[in-house]
Design a protein around this nucleic acid. Structure first.
Lengths: 201, 201
DNA sequence: CCTACCGATCGGTAGG
DNA sequence: CCTACCGATCGGTAGG
C-alpha cells in the first residue's frame, strides 16, 4: 500500500509540473503561483507546495520538465541522423516545429525563461544558464563534425554558427508569438540553410 | 504658480517613468509595482499612481519612454547615414551598442517585453506589437533602398533580411545577459555583415 | 502630493 | 493530501 501511495504522489507531482510548465509558457516562471496551480488542479495550496517545499524548487522542477520536452521533441529524433550537417538540420527543423506547435502554448520556453531570468541571480537562473550551455556545447560539437566532414568550409567558427542559429529560432519565436506570422517557420527554415551554406532549399 | 506646479508634475512623472523603465529592464513590466516605485522614489503609492491612474497606463508610458530611448540612441544617429546599406549598418551597430551599454541595465527592453507580453492580450501588448511593427517597416524600407542602389542583390527578400537581422540582436542580447559573454557584440557585428553580403569585416 | 484604508493574493507554516 | 492561519504586498479608492 505504501507502494501505491508513493506512485500516486509521483503522479500528482508530475501533473503539477506539467501544468506549471504550461502556465510558465504564457505567464513566465514568476506567473506560476502556488494558488493559481492549486485552483487549476483543484487542490489546496499546501497540497501543491507539499511536493516541492518552496516555489524555487518548483521552478527548478519546471526547468527539468522543459529539458525533457526538448530532449524528446528535438534531440532524440535528431540523433537518428548522421552527426554533422544532417543532424544539425534535423535539430533546427525539430526545434522550429516545437516552437510552432502547441506543446509549448506560448512559444519557446527557453527564450521566455532566459529573458525573464537573465537579470535575477539565483539557483533558477544558474540552472537555466547551465542547461542552455549544455545545449550550445552539443550544437558546437555538431558544427565541428560538419567541418571535419567537409560539409562546412574549413575555418568555420563553430561558436559563431551556433550563435547565428540561435538567433534564427529566437526571431521565429517572436514573429510567431507576437505577430502571429505563420510565415515565420519558413523564414527560419531559409535562414538556417543560408547559415549552413546550403542554397535556397 | 499654476505654471510651476504643472512643470513640477511633469518632472515627477518623467522621474517615475524613467525609474519604471529601469525596473522593467531587469524584472519585466509586471515587476514594475506601484509600491516598489513609491519606495524607490520616496513617494507614497497614491502619489505615484496619481500620474497614471492605473498600472496599465503606467506601462504604456514606459513603452513610450523606451521608444524614445531607442530613437535617440539608434534611429537619430543612423539617420545621418545615407539610406540603404550604410544606414542599415549604422542602425545595427547602434542597436548592438545600446543593448551592450547600461542605458538598459538588463539588455534589450524590446526583447524582454516581447517575450513577456506575447501571450497576454491587451492594450500594452498591442502597443508593443505596433511599435515593433513600425520599426520593422522602417527597416524593410532601408533594405529596399539598398536593393535599388545595387548594394544588395536583386531578388533579395527584404522581410527575410529584417527577420535575420532581428535574430542577431536577440542572440547577442541573450549571450550578453545570460552568459555575460563580451564576445557577443563582435559575433553580432560579424553576423550582420554576413547577412548583408559583406565579407568578414 | 499625502494618510488611511479596501479586498485579493502572495509564499509559506502549523498541525493534523 | 487537508483546513486554518501568518505577515507582506498587490492595485486601487476615498477624502483631503
Amino acid at each position: 500500500m505504501a507502494r501505491r501511495t508513493a506512485a500516486a504522489a509521483r503522479d500528482t507531482r508530475a501533473r503539477i509540473v506539467h501544468r506549471a510548465l504550461r502556465i510558465a509558457s504564457t505567464d513566465g516562471l514568476e506567473g506560476v503561483t502556488i494558488g493559481r496551480l492549486a485552483d487549476s488542479l483543484e487542490m489546496s495550496k499546501s497540497g501543491v507546495l507539499n511536493h516541492f517545499r518552496t516555489k524555487e524548487l518548483l521552478q527548478l522542477a519546471v526547468l527539468e520538465a522543459a529539458s525533457e520536452d526538448f530532449r524528446r521533441a528535438v534531440w532524440d529524433p535528431a540523433r537518428e541522423e548522421k552527426p554533422g550537417l544532417k543532424r544539425l538540420l534535423a535539430i533546427e527543423d525539430k526545434w522550429i516545429e516545437l516552437i510552432s506547435g502547441d506543446a509549448w502554448p506560448n512559444g519557446c520556453f527557453w527564450t521566455a525563461a532566459a529573458t525573464e531570468l537573465d537579470g535575477r541571480p539565483g539557483p533558477v537562473r544558474d540552472a537555466l544558464a547551465e542547461a542552455l550551455d549544455r545545449f550550445d556545447q552539443a550544437m558546437t560539437r555538431q558544427v565541428g563534425h560538419a567541418v571535419e566532414a567537409g560539409e562546412l568550409p574549413q575555418g568555420t567558427d563553430p561558436e559563431q554558427v551556433v550563435f547565428e542559429l540561435r538567433g534564427v529560432v529566437m526571431a521565429a519565436n517572436q514573429q510567431l508569438q507576437l505577430n502571429g506570422d505563420r510565415k515565420a517557420p519558413r523564414r527560419a527554415h531559409a535562414a538556417v540553410r543560408r547559415i549552413l551554406g546550403l542554397g535556397a532549399a
